[in-house]
Design a protein around this nucleic acid. Structure first.
Lengths: 219, 219
DNA sequence: ACCTGAACACCGTTCAAGT
DNA sequence: ACCTGAACACCGTTCAAGT
């Protein structure tokens, strides 16, 4: 499997890192495991990459870049936002470790790309210019925040656990909470069991977009 | 400083863990550092706490619990949501490591408390019952997501970096992006330099709440 | 029941030495 | 210029031994 004939490049290292992260999670990325997969010593990697943080940032960048390559070209700004949001949602769902990174240090390099995609649609919605930064930030925060929490749940689940069984367990736990302290949570326990993550994420996007267009109606 | 006369309890361990996390971040919490601070051996801690994950979850719980103790008792459901949101925002701002935990494994234990607080206000807003879970989830996702990203920025900053200088640097970086690929981001670079995190967070809450009341107008 | 602290397996990172 | 792999300092966790 290991193609030891090919040169050790930064790109090959990042690709292998993504594979390791996908396969075994954040704890699975090890300089030893990585160097074994690349058929070298651990020290070799340090010639191409400064340290583990930089490697994680590069891996995150690679995933987000891939998720954002498809140009929106949608019917409405709303649809374009939905497309960007779903692209990131799916990418994070497929690579759950990305979530932790996006709220970590790679923020600086990766976020402008997301911000730009969303911001153009904010402009297209007719939001007044002095609100552009605020509104675009709020939408990006919701997208990344919701996707991150979704990924966290997926991480608890693990790849081998049955989703329905898990939701059933949580739902049952909720139903057994103190009736007085958790009146609301108990009531919606069955809604939680039957909800669809993707649908709910889109419902959130739509709520935010409705808030935006209501607060800043297009002239 | 170390009160070696007192018994080693789970509560004292968790308190010391919070202090270490506050002082030195996620990397600062070490069983060795912790046991030194508590004047014992590392093994002693394992009698009270199963492992590091459980310890982190307990520390997170402690912080969130403290942030949610003040009952809202606000004029409107909107104000109550703002109060809960700001309480969590400030708690995460003060204990940035909490953000990473909330999107990690402690989700199960801690989230119902937040969910209940927000959910009661969703009910009070007159949202139809079959939408309760969705709407409450969206609000909680925004609160935790936005607070987490804010904390991430604070973590990059570190406690000793000048905030204004940092924002100035980021703003300048944005202004130097490619004019075609990053037309929007460049335009709002100065807005980013002058924004206030707390205000922007509240603006997001209000956008979401407006979206909720517009989509589900109170009868 | 609760604490001690040495020991184990593992990790990120460095660096002299090689090609 | 690029790679090797032993070595260093450190970590989470265990466990026989103590009180």
């Amino acid at each position: 499997m290991a193609r030891r004939s090919e040169a050790l490049t930064r790109a090959r290292i990042v690709d292998a890192a993504v594979e390791l992260l996908d396969a075994a999670g954040e704890g699975g990325l090890t300089f030893r495991a990585l160097s074994q997969r690349l058929a070298t010593g651990p020290g070799a990697i340090y010639w191409h990459v400064a340290n583990k943080d930089e490697l994680l940032a590069a891996a995150t960048d690679a995933v987000v870049d891939a998720a954002l390559t498809d140009e929106p070209s949608a019917a409405s700004p709303q649809d374009a936002v939905r497309a960007v949001a779903l692209g990131l949602f799916d990418a994070i769902d497929e690579h759950p470790w990305v979530a932790g990174q996006l709220s970590a240090s790679s923020w600086q390099a990766t976020t402008p790309r997301i911000f730009e995609s969303v911001g153009r649609q904010v402009r297209a919605l007719g939001v007044p210019q002095r609100e552009w930064f605020t509104v675009a930030s709020v939408i990006v925060q919701y997208i990344l925040g919701a996707a991150a929490q979704n990924a966290a749940n997926a991480r608890i689940l693990g790849p081998d656990v049955d989703r329905e069984a898990f939701l059933g367990t949580v739902s049952t736990t909720w139903e057994e909470l103190d009736p007085e302290d958790y009146a609301f949570t108990r009531t919606v326990a069955d809604q939680m069991r039957e909800h669809d993550d993707r649908e709910q994420f889109l419902a959130g996007i739509d709520l935010v977009l409705t808030g935006v267009t209501t607060t800043h109606p297009p002239r």
